[in-house]
Design a protein around this nucleic acid. Structure first.
Lengths: 263, 263
DNA sequence: CGTGCCAGGTGCCCT
DNA sequence: AGGGCACTTGGCACG
């Protein structure tokens, strides 16, 4: 044992498996974050099923009872269980079994050897902020509609229509109705189809309606479909939108100092 | 320091930040898995951008240089960087900064305090199987032979013949001998060659023998070879095999409620 | 490589 | 609870 402070932290290297059982109970009852590194076999059964034989992995049980198991390579966990799962732990026959149950899904991890076990209470109340999202693109268009085209006037955000939601609904300089679908990444065929569905229904009553895909780029097949369906594309990157929002908050940005090629 | 074994494992609790710098370099040069728990601030800039203020988190750098940072709650990492990123580490002004660069994306993590640092070489060569292993697929075929074709009767599992092992040996509805090679992934040319070697020897005594590759899919070159060698392919996915095994264990599944298009 | 498509997707917000 | 949809989606098959 290395250190301990009233159930807030504990760590052991090469502990016995039954000792791990005790530590795990202490971790769970203290709602601490538990980290175990060891040789385990995993099986999962729920929406899907999976199995993996023995290998050395990292298991993390967080304070909200979410479970993540990582192999030594790759960005994604090999198995997991969401927040709020029920966790049980039992020791027998030289195997330490940790099971997690959540809405009919079962994750079983059985360790035959543990290299490292530790739990700790972690404090993290910071707010996470994300920029250059599709939401930022919409916001930037409302703040500076001219990045779409001169004279464009956005009217509604997230308008609900029979076929779904329209990202932005507005008018062009000649008073034509404009429907905009915003994409943060390259627009694909599906995105054009989605926009077409919106516009199609509205064209019956309003033949002059325009549909515009706004995205940093568009795939060639999507471009092709765009022409066939008489829709349009305007290039706009999430990065420049994020910049517009931030600079505008400081009152620095106007359309004039915005390099039109950057959008 | 708790334990050490020729660059394969190291662990320190409440280390100084400059000591962490040394340990991180040792971990990275040994391609070990690095785990750090401490109070950090993170900022990411790439396809999108994000920021988060100080808080206690778990950072993992895997042996393939993928990076994952977890907060004490939630199943998903707050920030990450894919395999193959370039990782740098520097210490100064009471801050330990770890930066990861990958295809124009930058992830910066700055620690002001570290509770735990450890690295270890992890061995994990096990194969992960989703839904069913090849073994399970064979089991499913024995439990429900009609998924191969109406009237198929499996007889022997892993029959030993002169050229090696046959996955399944059986008879079709007309009494012809059938040899089956099961693959859980797309069948490749090599698999057809392997099956052909089994069947070739037996065709001398039994010209009506049939050879079937059972797999979720087959490559075009393998398909071509299949036709040339007068062998067959039956599509069967690990997913449907898993369903067969699970439902059969509850006595619920018959061929009638099995959607033939799923297999 | 580009592109399309699936995921135990997850998460967020809406009715 | 169920639907719609974004995501640093990641991951893989396929042209």
């Amino acid at each position: 044992m290395l250190a301990e402070c009233m159930g807030r932290f504990k760590l052991e290297v090469n502990p016995s498996l039954d000792r791990c059982g005790e530590i795990i109970h202490e971790a769970l009852s203290n709602k601490a974050v538990l980290i175990i590194v060891g040789n385990c076999i995993i099986d999962y059964n729920g929406r899907a099923s999976s199995k993996i034989g023995f290998g050395e992995r990292i298991l993390i049980v967080k304070s909200d009872s979410s479970v993540i198991i990582h192999r030594p390579r790759g960005i994604k966990p090999v198995n997991w269980q969401p927040s709020g799962s029920i966790i049980k732990c039992e020791y027998g026959r030289n195997i330490l079994k940790i099971s997690s149950y959540f809405k009919g899904e079962v994750l079983n991890v059985a360790f035959k050897n543990i290299v490292l076990i530790s739990f700790m209470k972690l404090e993290d109340e910071a707010e996470f902020s994300m920029y250059a999202t599709e939401e930022d693109m919409k916001k930037a268009i409302f703040m500076n509609p001219n990045i779409i085209e001169r004279g464009f006037i956005p009217i509604t955000d997230e308008k609900h229509v029979s076929s779904g939601f329209i990202d932005i609904y507005g008018k062009d300089s000649k008073g034509n109705t404009v429907v905009i679908e915003v994409k943060k990444d390259m627009a694909l065929k599906d995105d054009v189809i989605q926009l077409y569905r919106y516009v199609e229904g509205m064209r019956k009553n309003n033949p002059s309606i325009r549909g515009i895909i706004v995205s940093p780029s568009i795939s060639s097949s999507a471009k092709h479909l765009l022409v066939k369906t008489n829709l349009e594309h305007v290039k706009l990157t999430p990065k420049i939108c994020s910049k517009i929002i931030h600079e505008a908050e400081r009152g620095k940005l106007t359309l004039d100092n915005l390099n039109i090629n950057d959008r």
